[in-house]
């Protein structure tokens, strides 16, 4: 059911590689740039798939992705980072080596869990699904291990990208109305997170979420 488009695979691999780059990044603005890069790659992939299959909707979504994911959302994030001052370290609970190891293991889990389950999908479909699950898990890993609020937003965006990848790569995109809704939610979500990050910075004097530990029990 899926085109044997050989151009897809490298892009997907690249997308996954960006996740590892995020894990290795030391500066917040690098992370934001990497997220933008990932979004661009996604838009590229969507565009390729849309053109190859002749689905106009997908091309439109590719454009939308560029605008929102590579444009608006990084813009908001950048604003936040700028307003709270530059942070050069992405504080983490685990060191980088460990992060890489964990992320590698998660990729394995993703491959294993999709390998046998998704029988109905074609080979690239399976690969995309596995990559998507891996991105979801790595995104979550970033959120779990990184302490700064902005990094949590970044992790969230990686997850979101994984999701998008799954939607686009396996199903030619969701129905348009759903896609639009998702984009809207995403945008508002990041906006609200940004607002909250800003407020946290002004109340707590830091965006280190480790300090948000007053509500217990």
């Amino acid at each position: 059911m899926f085109l044997g488009n050989s151009g897809v695979s490298p892009v997907v691999t690249l997308i996954l590689a960006v996740c590892f780059l995020v894990l290795g990044a030391r500066r917040l603005d690098t992370v934001i740039r990497l997220v933008v890069f990932q979004a661009v790659l996604l838009a590229l992939l969507t565009g390729i798939l849309g053109l190859a299959n002749g689905i106009g909707e997908m091309v439109f979504i590719a454009g939308l992705t560029l605008v929102i994911k590579a444009g608006l959302i990084p813009f908001i994030l950048k604003k936040v980072v700028d307003r709270i001052g530059p942070r050069f370290e992405t504080r983490s609970y685990v060191n980088r080596k460990m992060s890489f190891l964990l992320a590698g293991a998660l990729v394995m889990v993703a491959y294993l869990s999709t390998g046998r389950i998704a029988q109905t999908l074609s080979a690239p479909g399976r690969e995309i699904l596995a990559t998507a699950i891996a991105m979801l898990l790595i995104g979550l890993l970033v959120m779990v291990t990184r302490k700064l609020a902005v990094m949590q937003i970044a992790g969230f965006l990686i997850m979101e990208n994984g999701l998008f990848l799954a939607g686009v790569g396996t199903t030619h995109g969701m129905p348009l109305v759903v896609e639009l809704g998702i984009f809207l939610d995403m945008l508002i979500g990041v906006l609200i997170m940004g607002i909250l990050t800003f407020r946290i910075q002004s109340s707590f004097g830091s965006i280190n979420t480790e300090k948000l530990r007053n509500l217990r029990g």
Partner: peptide, 28 residues
């Protein structure tokens, strides 16, 4: 603020999984 932050982060992450599940179901 702390509550709101945890609320939005946890629920959004959770809900991403839900969307993923929805996509898989759509696939099926």
């Amino acid at each position: 603020l702390e509550a709101a932050w945890k609320y939005i982060i946890l629920c959004t992450v959770g809900i991403i999984f839900a969307l993923f599940g929805t996509i898989i179901l759509y696939n099926a």
